[in-house]
Design a protein around this nucleic acid. Structure first.
Lengths: 231, 231
DNA sequence: CGCGGCTTTGATGTTCATCAAGTAAAGTGG
DNA sequence: CCACTTTACTTGATGAACATCAAAGCCGCG
């Protein structure tokens, strides 16, 4: 990952196409003048449950997890956000405090835009408002869809899901380095760590996967997809 | 329920406070002129998965369920919407077709507003845009939170959840008529119909509930809440 | 080097879905 | 309105899916 490349001008930001394509130079300047970019190292916290929401947060690069700490001190991962995702979900409009914690699971660059600036743009630029909501709606809908996909399946289907998720949506390759621990996989798809490991081993023995620590190669994509489909 | 009372003027609609409080008389007229209200009888379908999205739908009265039909022809209920909820979730901004089906589980009045009128208002009335997104964000966030609440609990906790949901959020009473069948409860909280019945019987035997068919009285709210908390 | 957290495998018991079978309730057509 | 059919409800018995416990190896880190 190229982290030394610091984007200083929104106008030239490669992610501008996202929801900001219809901003005038003037509106864009509003964002550019006060936005802050920050690099978070793998494992670093970006925000905590209960923190005041001050910014709209946009993931430029890397990978982060949204999670909740349960009463028994266990963590439950809600979703994994990838580049171009806005992070923090919709609570930024309906809450004053973050309802989830966010941590980088790979070195990540997050762009912070003052929430008031965004709100002001929504008020004054109708085209932007629609573009913007189209995008953030898609993210929220996909979180709901994912939770259902996971919870209506049993263990093998869930593991298949998460492997396909990383292969297709994150790394666009059948070979990748799993960015999270077995324990975190468990927290993400609601199963025990032991069973995550067991099912992965089973898949390896069945020649579906090749595994060396965090390094995973999907050797039979078709069959893995079928396991996902069948639940 | 008073279904003969047809609301003809948005200006006097008791639900106007919702997200439409800051509309000028002129803007309100735009909505009023083309909105359509319709009564759906218990069991009637409001829309199907795959239908084109033409309207913003707002539940004035009654109760509806959002669900998906799985490949094995089983239904999976995503959420139950109550009066003042907009129904259809956020997909209305990021999709052209409904991703869930919606059916009335009690006689319900739904108000349909042409989606283009809403989009136009978002474009031209910034205050409205913000009010509006604040409300619909809250609904989406609550769907996500609910799915997590349910799926991180085991059977007794899930049944406790659903009983408390109806008692607190829908009927505001510890005595109520369960509007859905045991089977639908099962589809909503991801468990088998038999086990829904079993846990309900168990709660009855433990003097937590009194049950006569669909009629349920919560006799020990505190203990039910504790069961929910403990999972 | 040693400690704590992650990983792995096996053994055990719990939770839960499924199957079966019967009763009650709710539609449906004559 | 009644016989008939279907759908909902209920309970028990069984086995599958899964979490939990236990023990040991591994790895990174101070």
């Amino acid at each position: 990952m190229e982290l030394s490349h610091k984007i200083n001008n929104c106008k030239e930001c490669i992610y501008r196409s996202w929801a900001f394509k219809n901003l005038s130079d003037n509106d864009l300047k509003q964002i550019n003048d006060q936005k802050k970019e920050r690099l978070f190292r793998k494992g670093e916290n970006i925000c905590f449950e209960g923190d005041e929401i001050l910014s709209f947060m946009y993931l430029q690069n890397g990978l982060v997890k949204l999670f909740k700490t349960e009463s028994n001190n266990k963590e439950h991962i809600i979703s994994i956000a990838k580049p171009k995702d806005f992070i923090g979900l919709l609570s930024i409009f309906s809450n004053t405090k973050h309802i989830y914690s966010i941590t980088a699971i790979e070195d990540s660059i997050v762009c912070f835009v003052d929430l008031n600036v965004i709100k002001n743009l929504i008020k004054t630029n109708g085209i932007f408002a629609l573009d913007f909501f189209e995008k953030i709606s898609a993210v929220s809908d996909s979180v709901i869809k994912t939770r259902i996909d996971i919870n209506t399946r049993q263990l093998r289907g869930r593991i298949a899901y998460i492997l396909l998720f990383f292969a297709k949506h994150i790394y666009d390759s059948t070979t990748f380095n799993l960015p999270i621990s077995r324990k975190e996989v468990a927290e993400l798809i609601d199963m025990s760590t032991e069973n995550v490991i067991r099912v992965l081993s089973e898949f390896r023995k069945d020649n579906l996967l090749q595994i060396e620590g965090k390094n995973i190669e999907i050797k039979d994509l078709k069959r893995l997809e079928r396991i996902f489909e069948l639940g």
